[in-house]
Amino acid sequence: MAYTRQADANVITQQYMDSILIESRYIDSVKANTEIEFLGETFSMPVMTPAFSHLSNYNGREKTGLEEYSEAARDLNILNFCGMMENDQFKKLVDTGAKTIRIVKPYADNGKVKDQMQFAESVGAFGIGMDIDHIFGNDGYDVVVGEEMSFQTSEMLRSYVELTKLPFVVKGVLSVADAVKSADIGAKAIIVSHHHGRVPYAVPPMVVLPEIKDALEGRDVKIIVDCGIATGADVFKALALGADAAAVGRSMLPSLESQGTAGVCEFIKGVGNELRYIMSSTGFENVSDIDSSVLYQV
């Protein structure tokens, strides 16, 4: 059989994640606690929603998928993220009561970037951020739903940080270099991500995660990881490799589409329950205790 090259970063990521195994440590272990402190707030678990954009009204329901998963984040007391949208849509998400971080696209119109960030703060966002891995497309700068994107320099990012009192998050970090630059401009968190494999052969986030963790030691920058997170085991591996939290993504879409808020709650509760089970079975009582000593690469 001829060898077929596989450039799909999502497949590469899944294969890498599945190659990481977990040992058990039962003696002296107790039921684990999944609560975390994150950017000054206490959340029920280190599982977060993704920064989705443009979700429609599924199955004719009144609310959009964005509103429904935001309601689930509120009910579960987990941190909520959202992506590209206009200001009126964002306000609907904040009005659900979910603690929500708005990730803004790198628009060529820098005034729109700042307007969306300032609006987010004015209506009660928990934080704001920039999606740096949507800058480029195959023909140069990306165009997303008719909106032109553009480059983002360190000084531009610093100006966004200085624009607000809210925590600033840089999404799309996939290198030590960008992680350190994010810390230097004052970001309070980064999302280590390849954005569902936008770049062929993109390195799996969990491969670079330990190096990023080491590089940010003492910098007071929280690390979130996404891409391929679908189970409590995935979250556990991310935490053990250096993340402070992990975001589910497309794995929650079937539950969202079929059952809305209730479906997302059920799905993420399942992720959190499996995380607690694995923590308890490996001797880690608290999320902050988890380390890589129980992981094996095969």
Rank of each mutant, 00 (worst) to 15 (best):
C227T: 13
P204I: 10
S258T: 12
H196P: 02
L239D: 03
D244T: 00
G65C: 08
G242N: 09
F90H: 14
D214F: 04
R61H: 15
K105G: 08
L253E: 12
I78R: 00
G218W: 02
T42A: 14
D142I: 08
A240M: 00
P200S: 10
I22Q: 02
K105E: 10
V161P: 00
F151C: 12
I78E: 01
M117R: 07
I191P: 05
S159N: 09
V176N: 01
C227K: 08
N33G: 15
S175V: 03
P167T: 03
E155T: 08
I101D: 14
G272L: 05
Y296R: 05
N87D: 15
V11M: 06
E68M: 12
R219I: 04
V180C: 01
K99L: 04
Q118H: 13
F136A: 12
E41D: 15
V221Y: 01
R102A: 11
P46A: 03
E155N: 13
A202I: 07
R276P: 09
M149S: 11
R276V: 09
E285A: 15
V94M: 10
R61W: 14
A247M: 02
N80W: 09
Q14Y: 12
K92A: 11
K171G: 11
I223D: 00
G186P: 03
V94C: 13
F151P: 03
D142F: 10
M149Y: 12
E217T: 04
G272Y: 10
N77C: 07
I278Q: 02
A230F: 02
F126P: 11
D88K: 14
A240G: 00
R74E: 10
T100F: 11
G263P: 04
V264Q: 09
A246I: 04
Q118R: 14
D220I: 01
V170S: 01
I223G: 00
A177G: 07
K31N: 13
E147S: 09
V145K: 05
L174N: 07
L93G: 07
A125K: 07
A183H: 03
D220F: 02
E41G: 09
S175E: 03
I78S: 01
D214S: 08
G186C: 04
N10E: 13
V47C: 04
S70K: 08
N33S: 11
L174V: 06
S19H: 07
R61C: 11
I78M: 02
G172E: 06
Y107D: 03
G140Q: 05
E162I: 05
A9P: 15
Y3I: 11
F236Y: 05
S53R: 09
I128D: 10
A177I: 13
I132P: 06
V113K: 14
P204T: 12
S281E: 05
L21V: 02
Q15N: 11
V225D: 01
S24A: 08
V123R: 14
G263D: 11
D139R: 03
Q15M: 10
Q152D: 08
G197W: 14
D214Q: 13
F38G: 05
T164E: 07
S56T: 12
I268V: 13
Y69Q: 07
G65R: 06
R276Y: 08
R25V: 11
G242L: 07
D18H: 06
T261Q: 14
L157G: 06
Y201I: 10
A177D: 15
L157S: 06
M130E: 03
A2R: 04
A73K: 04
F236G: 00
T64Q: 06
L166N: 01
V199K: 12
P167N: 02
